[in-house]
């Protein structure tokens, strides 16, 4: 229900609240014009989608590098490839992180600590398997002490192949995860 300026229910009594100084006329007057015509920057969407947007823009991974892929993961955090612009900041505590990037070979001795860490993470949580060793065992697929892929222990959302994957590939994997997170509410509704 639109409010007519000058009507009884208009709190501003027909006057404009926004008082502009003389110098700012150029920029702010455009906004004023837009506000009058109704384009005032209000977004309407379902709350689940809003929360999904918030979650995907601020994914905090657990500091968890196992082997060689960890070096490429650290390179992705560094200014040359910069994970920070995606909102991704590494965080040492499992209780406060959202995503676990399993970077490196999962060895049978390490399987239990990984499971413990995954259980300590608070929902909603996701897992990215980075590199061939975490995806399927990698070059060590004939070994007696390697778990053939981390998805034998914990559920995985995104697989990033490579040995090691380039930082750009890991960025692509995180963007894929962001798409998954954004589409989760729609999936729940069956769309």
């Amino acid at each position: 229900m639109a409010i007519e300026p000058g009507s009884l229910s208009d709190p501003n009594n027909g006057k404009d609240r926004l008082i502009l100084p003389e110098e700012a006329k150029g920029v702010w007057s455009d906004i004023k014009e837009n506000r009058k015509s109704g384009i005032s920057g209000v977004v309407t969407l379902k709350s689940e989608e809003l929360f999904a947007m918030a979650r995907k823009s601020s994914l905090w991974p657990l500091t968890f590098g196992l082997a060689c892929c960890a070096i490429e993961m650290i390179s992705t955090y560094m200014p040359n490839h910069d994970f920070d612009r995606f909102g991704v900041v590494t965080w040492p505590s499992p209780r406060q992180s959202d995503v676990m990037i399993v970077a490196g070979t999962v060895v049978k001795k390490m399987a239990e600590p990984i499971k413990l860490l995954y259980e300590q993470m608070a929902s909603p949580k996701w897992v990215i398997a980075m590199g061939s060793c975490a995806t399927c065992g990698g070059p060590y697929v004939r070994s007696y002490s390697v778990v053939m892929g981390v998805d034998q222990i914990i559920p995985v959302d995104v697989y990033v192949p490579g040995c090691p994957p380039r930082p750009e590939a890991l960025l692509g994997g995180v963007m894929e995860l962001q798409d998954i997170i954004q589409n989760e509410p729609r999936k729940k509704r069956g769309l």
């Binding site: 049978k108 001795k109 004939r142 070994s143 007696y144 002490s145």
Partner: peptide, 18 residues
């Protein structure tokens, strides 16, 4: 090796695929 590993992997009798 982890606690409870059975066998001795270095020996020739412990076979792994080629």
């Amino acid at each position: 090796l982890y606690e409870g590993f059975e066998g001795f992997p270095g020996r020739k009798s412990f076979e792994i695929p080629v």
